[in-house]
Design a protein around this nucleic acid. Structure first.
Length: 640
DNA sequence: CTAGGGTTAG
C-alpha cells in the first residue's frame, strides 16, 4: 500500500525538494530495496532537476543496494544529458565489470552516443562490431545512436548509409541526421533530407530554422518560422536568437514581445538572447525586467545566463550590477571572466579589469584570445603602455594564445593614445597581418589627440584605400586639419566628400525613460516634447556659457557661418537626449545615454559641465567605450 | 533517444 502511495507522490512531484522528501520517506519505510520505486525516483529526479543537482542524484544512485539495468541506464543517460559523456562512459565500464547486471540494447545505445561525443572512434567501431555480433544491429535506439556517433566522427556518409538502410526508421534518426548536417553547415544536404523525410515534426522544423539562422540567413529562417503552424518555445527562441546574433536587436525584442502575446513562456535560453539584444541597444530597463523575471521564477542562473547578465549590465552602463551578478555566480568560465574584464575595461576601470585578469589566472581559468582583447583594451583606456606590451608579449609566450590582428589593433591603439605615434606606425608596418581599416583608424584617432598632421595624412591614404565611403574618416581628418588651422585642407576634405558623395551617418542618441526608449538624431524636432526640449537646451547652453563654456565651432564640418555652427553643435543628438533626460527624470538620478558614434569634443566638454552644473551623474556609451561624467570630469580622463 | 543560449580592436 505504502509503495503505491509513494509512486503516486513521485508522479506528482515537480520540485527537487519534494523529491528529496519522498526519498527520505522511501528510506524510512524501507522501500529503498525496491528497484522499481527507486527507478521511478531517479527518473522524476532528472525530470525536475538541473545539471547542478546531478551530484545529489548520484548520491541517491550510489546508495541503491543493487541497482538493476534500468537504474544504471537512467544514471548513464543523466550524465549524457548534462554534457558529461566521460562520466557516462566510465559508469558503463563499471556496469560491464559487474557481470550480474545484464547490458541491454539501450545501455549500448547510450555508450555509443557517449563515444560519439567523446570523439572516440576506436571504441566506437568496436562497439559497432559488438552490436552486430550480438544481433542488435537493427535495434532502433542503437541505429539512431550509431547515426549520431558516425556523424560526430565526421563520417557523415556512413551515418547517412545507416539511415538509408534502416528497416523501420521513426522520425528520430531522421532528426538526428538533420541536426548533424546543420551542425557541420551542410544546409543543402539538410534541406534534401528535410524534403524527402516521410513526415516532419516540430523538431525537424526547428532544426531547419536554426540551420539557416546559424549560417546568417535569417530571412529563410524567418520564412520557415512563419510556415511553422505550431510554434513552440524552441521555435521562438531559435528565431529570437537568430535576430540577436545578427544584431537585429530591435527585431529580436519585438519578436520576444510577440512570443509573450502568443502565450509561450520563455525559459533561460530565450532570456540569454533577449539579454544580448538588450545589451546591444542599451535597454537597461528591459534588461532589469528580464533579470527580475529570472529571480521571480527562480530560474537557475547558469554560466551562459550569468554571462549574458554580466554583459547586458555592462553594455547598458550599469557596471555595479554587472559586478554584482558576476560575484554572485557560483562558477565562472573563460566567457564569464572575459565578459567581466571587457565590461570593466570599457567603463575605464582598467586596474580593476587587470585585477580580475590576475584573479582569473589564479583560479586556473585559461585565458583565450577574447580575454586578451579585454586586457589590452583595459591598458589602452587608462594609458598603460608598458604593461600593455608585457601582456601582449605574454599572450603567446606564457598563455599559448597567438595574437590576431585584433590584438595588434589594440597595441596600435595603446601606443597611439600614449603619443608614441612613430612606434604605432612601425608596428602596423611590421605586424604579420595586412593592416585593416581599424588599425589605420586607430592611428588616425591618435593623430587627432596629438595633433600630428603628417602621420594623419599617411594613415588616411591607407584608410581611404580600404574604406573610401566612411564619413567618419573624413570628419576625423578634417578635425585634425582644423585643429592645426590648415583651413585650405579642411575645405579640401569637404570638397572630396562632396565629390564622391559621402553619405553622412547621422549621429543618434537614445535614452530610456520609464522603460520607453527615446531616440534623437542631430537637429531632431520630431519628439512630441520637442519645444520643451529645445527651450531646456538653450537654457543649458546659457548656463554653461556663464560657467566658461565656449562652443568648439571649429569642429563643425559644414560650410556654415559662426552662429549656424554654434547652432549645429548645440543640437547634437546627445545634447538633445540629455536635455530630455534632465526634464523627465528625478533630480539627482543618473542619466544614461547610448550613442551610435563617438562623442565629439564639444559635447564631451559640455557634458562635463552639465554634470557639475546640474549635479547629475551622466553615463554615455559611445561607439567604443563608456564615459562617466561626474561633477565636471569624465572617467576617461579626457583620454579617448 | 532528436531541436534553441554567453565574451571579440576603433
Amino acid at each position: 500500500m505504502i509503495g503505491k502511495k509513494v509512486m503516486s507522490l513521485l508522479q506528482n512531484a515537480t520540485k527537487l525538494n519534494q523529491i528529496i522528501q519522498i526519498h527520505a520517506l522511501i528510506i524510512k519505510t524501507s522501500l529503498d530495496g525496491n528497484n522499481f520505486v527507486l527507478a521511478k525516483l531517479l527518473r522524476r529526479l532528472f525530470a525536475c532537476s538541473s545539471a547542478n543537482d546531478l551530484p545529489y542524484a548520484r548520491s541517491v544512485f550510489d546508495e541503491i543496494p543493487s541497482p538493476d539495468t534500468f537504474i544504471w541506464n537512467t544514471m548513464i543517460r543523466a550524465y549524457l544529458n548534462s554534457q558529461n559523456p566521460q562520466e557516462s562512459m566510465s559508469l558503463f565500464c563499471q556496469m560491464r565489470l559487474l557481470e550480474c547486471i545484464p547490458i541491454d540494447s539501450y545501455s549500448l545505445s547510450l555508450v555509443i552516443q557517449a563515444c560519439g561525443r567523446l570523439k572516440d572512434p576506436g571504441n566506437g567501431q568496436k562497439l559497432h562490431t559488438q552490436v552486430l555480433k550480438i544481433g542488435l544491429g537493427s535495434d532502433l535506439f542503437v541505429e539512431t545512436a550509431l547515426i549520431e556517433m558516425y556523424a560526430k566522427f565526421g563520417d557523415i556518409e556512413i551515418a547517412r548509409k545507416i539511415l538509408d538502410e534502416m528497416a523501420h526508421p521513426d522520425l528520430v534518426p531522421y532528426n538526428v541526421l538533420l541536426a548533424e548536417y546543420v551542425r557541420i553547415g551542410e544546409i543543402n544536404l539538410a534541406h534534401d533530407l528535410f524534403d524527402r523525410m516521410p513526415e516532419r515534426d516540430l523538431v525537424s522544423w526547428n532544426t531547419m530554422i536554426h540551420g539557416h539562422a546559424s549560417l546568417g540567413d535569417v530571412g529563410t529562417a524567418k520564412k520557415l518560422f512563419d510556415r511553422t503552424c505550431e510554434r513552440d518555445l524552441i521555435s521562438w527562441s531559435s528565431m529570437i536568437a537568430a535576430y540577436a546574433k545578427t544584431r537585429q536587436s530591435n527585431e529580436a525584442l519585438r519578436l520576444f514581445h510577440e512570443m509573450q502575446l502568443a502565450n509561450v513562456l520563455p525559459d533561460k535560453v530565450t532570456m540569454v538572447s533577449v539579454l544580448s539584444a538588450c545589451g546591444d541597444v542599451g535597454a537597461l530597463g528591459m534588461g532589469k525586467m528580464i533579470h527580475e523575471c529570472i529571480e521571480r521564477n527562480r530560474i537557475e542562473i547558469d554560466l551562459k545566463l550569468g554571462t549574458s547578465l554580466v554583459d547586458m549590465y555592462a553594455k547598458c552602463g550599469d557596471i555595479d550590477n554587472s559586478l554584482r551578478v558576476f560575484n554572485g555566480m557560483n562558477n565562472r568560465d573563460v566567457f564569464a571572466w572575459s565578459a567581466m574584464i571587457m565590461g570593466l575595461a570599457n567603463h575605464g576601470f582598467g586596474e580593476l579589469a587587470l585585477d580580475h585578469f590576475s584573479k582569473m589566472i589564479s583560479e586556473d581559468i585559461k585565458p583565450n584570445d577574447v580575454t586578451f582583447i579585454g586586457v589590452l583594451s583595459a591598458c589602452s583606456h587608462i594609458g598603460l603602455v608598458d604593461k600593455g606590451w608585457t601582456y601582449f608579449t605574454s599572450m603567446s609566450k606564457v598563455y599559448g594564445v597567438s595574437p590576431k590582428i585584433e590584438h595588434y589593433g589594440c597595441v596600435v591603439d595603446i601606443l597611439g593614445r600614449a603619443g608614441r605615434l612613430q612606434e604605432a606606425k612601425e608596428l602596423i608596418r611590421s605586424m604579420p597581418f595586412a593592416p585593416d581599416a581599424i588599425v589605420w583608424r586607430a592611428l588616425l584617432g591618435a593623430c587627432r589627440i596629438y595633433k600630428n598632421v603628417e602621420i594623419a595624412e599617411e594613415a588616411t591614404v591607407n584608410l581611404l584605400e580600404l574604406e573610401p565611403h566612411v564619413d567618419g574618416h573624413y570628419v576625423l581628418l578634417s578635425n585634425i586639419y582644423s585643429q592645426a588651422k590648415e583651413w585650405d585642407k579642411v575645405v579640401n576634405v569637404r570638397r572630396m566628400m562632396k565629390n564622391i558623395n559621402i553619405q553622412k551617418v547621422p549621429g543618434s542618441s537614445s535614452i530610456e525613460v520609464d522603460n520607453a526608449v527615446h531616440e534623437f538624431v542631430a537637429g531632431d524636432q520630431s519628439h512630441p516634447e520637442s519645444e520643451k526640449i529645445l527651450r531646456m537646451l538653450s537654457e543649458i547652453t546659457d548656463r554653461l556659457k556663464d560657467n566658461g563654456y565656449a562652443p568648439l565651432t571649429a569642429s563643425v564640418l559644414q560650410d556654415f557661418d559662426e552662429k549656424e555652427k554654434e547652432n549645429a553643435l548645440a543640437h547634437h543628438s546627445e545634447k538633445l537626449a540629455i536635455a530630455f533626460g534632465l526634464l523627465s527624470t528625478a533630480p539627482g538620478s543618473t542619466i544614461r545615454i547610448v550613442k551610435n558614434l563617438r562623442v565629439c569634443d564639444d559635447c564631451h566638454i559640455a557634458i562635463k559641465l552639465i554634470s557639475r552644473t546640474y549635479k547629475r551623474r551622466i553615463i554615455v556609451r559611445d561607439r567604443n567605450r563608456f564615459h562617466h561624467f561626474v561633477n565636471g570630469s569624465c572617467s576617461c580622463k579626457d583620454y579617448w
